[in-house]
């Protein structure tokens, strides 16, 4: 059973169609990256799935509970909004204790969970400082801690690392990675590198529509360009140019593009190219410093898919 199942959800705000018959499913225990440009409908989807907004049409289930029927969904989920706002007059310890009370945890459970979570997000040293004095990064980590108090089955993270500095971002992404297997993480973001780093599956949304949904490797393989890149030593540009000319005559080569000491070879037949390309370079006594099969980045796939969607 999917941890999250969305069937044909639509939502309109005035003249803006925020979500348009969105359908997707997320496997349990995975980290799902919900990728899309700003205004694509990511936050609206999370607001609907957490019960903060209602869809105009369609249905959704989270952790087996239908969204909107009010039966225990809140106990099974955790949510980190894009700009987590905790009560500024409380200390982290007080705030987590309050959340623990809301989840009806015993005093001993609350004390243990508070300690554990403050340590996890690195806020133990400031546990008695008021949240109002925290930096943006600290508030983000505080937000993550509060979302984990009830050990949620499904954790919603709305742009969890977009406002953080590189170090803070790495910490938060590592933390999310560690949650894999413990709970299902539904993470919305527009930062492709974050998805590439931490997510198992990806859903790309644009203008309220799901463009594609797949495991990350599948997606990259599906949109892989059959190409190789060969880089030679600096100063060997002339040899490279001569080799490229011979290469262009080969039937298995579709195109070759040269950029300084690098040549990108797009092929028709990957198997044949694997056998021939390196030996052709060796025969030409080319001083190769790097040879690799070009792996498309998620960014390339994203831009291609969103671009195609935009053209329609």
């Amino acid at each position: 059973m999917a941890a999250i199942r969305i069937e044909g959800i639509s939502k309109r705000f005035g003249s803006v169609q925020a979500l348009d018959r969105l359908t997707l499913a997320v496997e349990p225990g995975t980290v799902f990256g919900f990728l899309g440009p700003n205004g694509a409908g990511k936050t609206t989807t999370i607001r609907i799935l957490t019960g903060l907004a209602r869809p105009d049409a369609g249905r959704a289930w989270v952790a087996g509970v239908e969204v909107g029927d009010g039966k225990g969904l809140a106990r099974r989920i955790g949510c980190l909004p894009e700009e987590p706002a905790c009560y500024p007059w409380m200390t982290p310890r007080e705030f987590l204790d309050y959340i623990g009370r809301v989840f009806d945890l015993s005093a001993a459970e609350r004390a243990a969970r508070t300690r554990e979570l403050l340590e996890l997000v690195g806020l133990t040293e400031v546990e008695r400082r008021r949240i109002g004095t925290f930096s943006r990064g600290m508030r983000q980590r505080m937000g993550l801690a509060q979302a984990l108090v009830n050990r949620p089955e499904v954790l919603f993270l709305d742009e969890p690392a977009s406002a953080l500095d590189p170090a803070g971002r790495r910490e938060v992404l590592e933390l999310i990675g560690r949650l894999r297997g413990q709970c299902t993480v539904f993470m919305s973001t527009h930062i492709l590198a974050d998805v590439e780093r931490v997510c198992d599956s990806v859903g790309i949304i644009n203008r309220g529509r799901l463009v594609t949904e797949a495991r990350q490797e599948e997606l990259l393989a599906r949109y892989a360009v059959p190409a190789f890149e060969v880089e030679v030593e600096n100063g060997a540009a002339a040899e490279l140019a001569a080799w490229v000319e011979t290469l262009r005559r080969q039937p298995w080569v579709a195109a070759v593009a040269v950029d300084g000491s690098r040549a990108r070879v797009t092929v028709n037949d990957v198997v044949h190219a694997r056998q021939e390309l390196l030996s052709a370079a060796a025969q030409s006594a080319l001083p190769v410093v790097r040879y690799e099969v070009v792996r498309p980045s998620l960014e390339e796939v994203f831009l291609r898919l969103v671009g195609e969607e935009g053209e329609r």
Binding site: E83, P84, V102, Q146
Partner: peptide, 13 residues
């Protein structure tokens, strides 16, 4: 406005 209501009301409050 500040978002504390949304933060709290996704919980069993």
């Amino acid at each position: 406005d500040k978002g504390t209501a949304a933060l709290m009301l996704v919980k069993p409050l």
